[in-house]
Design a binder for these strands. Structure first.
Length: 229
DNA sequence: ACCACGATGAACT
DNA sequence: GTTCATCGTGGTC
């Protein structure tokens, strides 16, 4: 792979991979804290991914916009299960959308990942998307899954274990302290997301009910966030 | 069994 | 700003 070993090693390090305790909390809190974390698909030999810049929180019975608002159905039952598993569903006849399950088991919740700044394996993403502009590559939940090659077989994957090939990692910027100049560019991106940050919130996108809740979160000013600006 | 509609995106006017 | 492709899901009959 074309990335410094040190970086690959850190991303796949167990202590940096977000675990069940991280996801087993209030959904909006998890959504906020996922901003600036690294979404990775693949293994240490070959992987794609980038930094999460936009997501949305979905709850259960009291959230009319949620798939879980009427209780568990064959599709939504996964939202009631173990925190940290992937909920991937097919939408509008064209798109797969990626969520991470949150809250304690039996309590429904999930965070929809809406956009990343693509950094790792961008060549692969460009191939899948037929789009070159990095700003547009993984902007919007349908574009993001297409760029990363996520489809229905990813539903139910355990995102707290890199063995399932899909996870979200934090990182420790101090590990990159005395690195050579050739890694300067990529390390500056890690620094950028380490120092977040102003988080903005808004109404969620594409829903007709529950629009009063400000449950969409994004990094203010990021060019990789979907929508008008 | 039926059918309206969507946690979208692209291509239009 | 509007339209529309496309099909799985789930509420309704």
């Amino acid at each position: 792979m074309d990335f410094p070993k040190k970086i690959t090693k850190q991303l796949f390090k167990r202590k940096n991979i977000l675990d069940e305790d991280f996801y087993s909390r209030d959904t909006a809190t998890v959504a906020r804290e996922l901003l600036g974390k690294v979404l990775i698909i693949g293994d240490e030999e070959s992987y794609c991914g980038g930094f999460i810049v936009e997501d949305e929180a979905y709850y259960g019975l009291n959230d009319p916009a949620s798939h879980a608002c009427n209780g568990a159905t064959p599709r939504s039952k996964i939202m009631f299960e173990k925190p940290g598993i992937a909920y991937v569903y097919f939408c509008y006849g064209n798109h797969y959308l990626l969520n991470v399950v949150t809250e304690k088991p039996t309590i429904p919740g999930a965070v929809l990942i809406r956009a990343i700044e693509p950094v790792f394996g961008t060549g692969e993403m460009i191939k899948r998307r037929q789009v070159k502009d990095p700003e547009r590559l993984a902007k919007g939940p349908g574009n993001l899954t297409k760029a990363l090659g996520i489809e229905k077989s990813f539903n139910g994957k355990n995102m707290t274990d890199f063995k399932d090939g899909l996870f979200i990692a934090g990182f420790d910027i101090s590990d990159f302290n005395n690195d050579s100049k050739k890694n300067e560019e990529i390390i500056s991106i890690f620094k950028k997301y380490n120092e977040i940050k102003e988080i903005s919130s808004s109404s969620r996108v594409g829903i007709k009910q529950g629009t009063e809740s400000m449950l969409r979160f994004y990094i203010k000013g990021s060019r990789f966030v979907s929508g008008k600006n």
